[in-house]
Simulated assay, not measured.
Amino acid sequence: MIVDCALYRAGARIERPQDLSEALDAARARGDTFLWLGLYQPTPEELDLVARELKLHPLAVEDAIKAHQRPKLEQYEDSLFCVVKTLLYRKENTQLETGEVALFLGDGFAVTVRHGEANPLHDVRLRMEQQERDVLRHGPASVLYAVCDAIVDTYGEIVAEIEQDLEELEAAVFAPHRKNQAERIYLLKREVLEFRRAAVPLLSPMRQLAEGHVPGVAKGTRPFFRDVNDHLQRVVEAVESFDRLLGDILSANLAQVSVRQNDDLRKISAWVAIIAVPTMVAGIYGMNFEHMPELKLQYGYPLVLLLMLTVCAALYRWFKRSGWL
């Protein structure tokens, strides 16, 4: 569906057009005006209608409908097509939900197609209209900057959330009363991998925009894209460090599990050895032979009990000293 549609002249919103074709002709006629159309999870029929009005490339339209694309920047004859992954981090279950924003930029127009719940663009448009009109003066490229800037800022917030989860995970792995954290580590590692798939491929498009290698993008927007590119590089460095750190935490957790298993095995072995002494003695004297030594002694029974207790106590003390108990 169409979320919002407006004409912008010299950085200010002027009207909501009724007809896309007429609005586009009016924008192109003046030169300082462009059309910004926002769509949210449009049907193929709705997007085809917009594509016909704005003469968008069919391959780009197909990618925008499917919404399972890798972040990329593609140049067509009459338009520029960009795909950016959106992310929403659910801290309660350590899950990362992904969405997508596809952007079409052309002569006098900018179209955003959003899929998923993450990064709604209404606040982005409102911020540009109220606080960054000077940026809007640069035309359709300013929309691309504003969307990418908002999404990369969200990446930074997710980095902070994951850092906190990693600190909690490290504390849990090395806690005195610890349990196996392998499942939790694996789940977080999978979400970090999903984060990496969203952020790393975006580096190349942002670098191209920052360096001015993309035709049709106003030169005045280069400093803005450089700022986004710097933020994105810090995010990617953090995500890659998360991946390595989670690998180290997983190895440490496996080592801890192995150590605990060895400790448990030693404790079991020690108690088996202690219990074996009275079991052996009682077994010998329970064989019911008539001619056995000490059977007729008056104090034989308490002496045997005392012997078993003494040996068991000595074994217990020895295992305690050696760290087995």
Rank of each mutant, 00 (worst) to 15 (best):
V3F: 00
D4H: 14
D4V: 05
C5K: 12
C5W: 10
A6L: 03
L7N: 03
L7E: 14
Y8C: 08
G11E: 09
G11C: 04
A12G: 00
R13Q: 11
I14N: 00
P17A: 10
P17M: 05
Q18T: 12
Q18P: 01
L20S: 10
S21W: 04
E22C: 00
E22R: 15
L24H: 08
D25G: 04
A26F: 11
A26W: 02
A27P: 06
A27V: 06
A27N: 11
A27C: 15
R30C: 10
G31Y: 10
G31L: 09
D32C: 00
T33I: 00
F34R: 02
F34W: 15
W36D: 06
L37W: 09
Y40F: 02
Q41K: 03
P42K: 09
P42S: 04
P42W: 01
T43M: 08
T43K: 08
P44D: 11
P44H: 05
E45M: 07
E46Y: 02
L47C: 05
D48W: 08
L49S: 13
L49A: 14
A51F: 08
R52K: 15
E53Y: 02
E53G: 10
L54R: 09
K55W: 00
L56D: 09
L56T: 09
P58I: 09
L59T: 12
